[in-house]
Each structure stands twice: as structure tokens, then as C-alpha cells.
Amino acid sequence: MARIWKFGTDVDTDQIVPGRYAPYMLKEGQDVKDYAFIEARPDFARVAQPGDVIVAGANFGCGSSREYAPDALRRRQIGAIIAPSFARIFFRNAINLGIPLFESTEIPELVGDGEAVEMDVVNGRLITPSATYQLPPLPDFAADVIRAGGIVRYVRENGRFPGEL
């Protein structure tokens, strides 16, 4: 079973992937996904598994526009990120890459680090051994993009951007 990784408020992209570990700076054979939270949470970098869920405080992903931060989490196959709010550029980047985000003030207060969890993205449900939580839905355009598997696929399939007539 997957687990929850808890983080505090204002997690910045320098914590998610420090600029020194940008793909731009890596050597042949190194992969940015191995550097997700490499300094802020080295155990995450070592053992986070596909399906694991990040639950954090407000303003998750503030700071730099570096898309390799959410991309490193996508390539770790993180099941979802749940926080009361997300920084603007991180929100765009994550939705563009097809990473499910859920805005919830309640969940971060109810679940703990390391708790076993199962994520039902399609129905927006977070399932722990003791409870099942219904998550608030994303705005329609964001849900559409995630359903398409990211903005590139959305634009290629629909021939238009979200919000474009």
C-alpha cells in the first residue's frame, strides 16, 4: 500500500529539487527523479513509491518556475498532491504535466506522515485504513487537462486551449 508524505507550509521548489540538481546541471546517466526532495527530505528521495501521496500545508511549490520540480514528482509517479493552496506557477506546471492536485484545508489536519493510503483520483477520494475522504474537485479546465494526460495532449487532441472557443 502507498503511504502519505507530510510537508509543512510554503514548500518551495528549491526544496523539491534544488537548482544544483536541475536536468541542465546533471551528468549523463543522472536522472532528476532521483533528486526529488534530496536535501529537504532525503528519505523521500530514497524510498518514495508510485502511488504515494504528498499532503502539505498552504502555498505548496512557491518560488522558481522550474518545471523539473513537479516533473520529478510525476516521474516518481506520485499519486496526488493535496494542500490547502498551491503557488501559481507550480499549479500550472503540475496540471500541464497531468499531476492530480487537490485543494483541501481539511486533509492536512486529518492525516499523518507515513499513514497508509490509497488514492482514487478519478473519484477524488483519499482512502486510509480508518476513513475515506472526499476531496473537493478541481476547476473544470484543470480536471479536463488532467483527464487528457496533460496540456500538450489536451491541445493536440482538442486543437485548442482550455477556455478557447
Partner: peptide, 14 residues
């Protein structure tokens, strides 16, 4: 306004 790689790539392409 700042954006990530995918957003900028979409501007360059479309």
C-alpha cells in the same frame, strides 16, 4: 509572468 517549460513550449509551437 513566469511559466514552466511546457507553457513556454506551447507558446513557441502555437
Amino acid at each position: 509572468s513566469g511559466m514552466g517549460s511546457t507553457d513556454i513550449a506551447l507558446v513557441w509551437a502555437t
